[in-house]
Design a protein around this nucleic acid. Sequence first.
DNA 1: TCTTATTGCAGACTATAGTCTGTAGTCTAA
DNA 2: TTAGACTACAGACTATAGTCTGCAATAAGA
Lengths: 73, 73
Amino acid sequence: MKADLFGKVLQEMRKERHLSQEKLAELCELDRTYISLLERGLRQPTLATLFKLAAALEINPSELVVRVEQKSD
Amino acid sequence: MKADLFGKVLQEMRKERHLSQEKLAELCELDRTYISLLERGLRQPTLATLFKLAAALEINPSELVVRVEQKSD
DNA sequence: TCTTATTGCAGACTATAGTCTGTAGTCTAA
DNA sequence: TTAGACTACAGACTATAGTCTGCAATAAGA
């Protein structure tokens, strides 16, 4: 699994929902700069963080993972 | 998301495959004691670790997450 | 018994997830 | 020009993921 795939998925999902990094961070109670790190592939979320992000994006956590898998092909 | 759900799923999947913690650890290049910590809900894997575990269990990472979601209900 | 396989668990450690503060760059609208 | 919204990024920090070593407990089989 390439390190930056999740970041790309996260950014796509966030932009589709017209959310700023700051607004997303607020929704999932994470730091704004950490969202930036995730999107740039400089951090890997834990499973608990994945669930928080998915909830904020109103998507199933597993669906987020599916999108990462699809990018792996 | 309750902290120990993933651990239960992991243990179920491992036992279905008749793998010891040690063998699973070897397959995904993680420490045996860490598998134990995961199964007991004392650690949360990162996304990268989730992918490693799924590969060792010969299952899609997203399918692992689906099982955690199902336990959340 | 004894041995082997398996797992829990403690303790000390290293690597990285996640926070906090601040600065600078870009873009858009007034 | 300037002000506001957005983001990249640096640095120093705290919390937790993940490793390593070793010991104790249990169960199953010779």
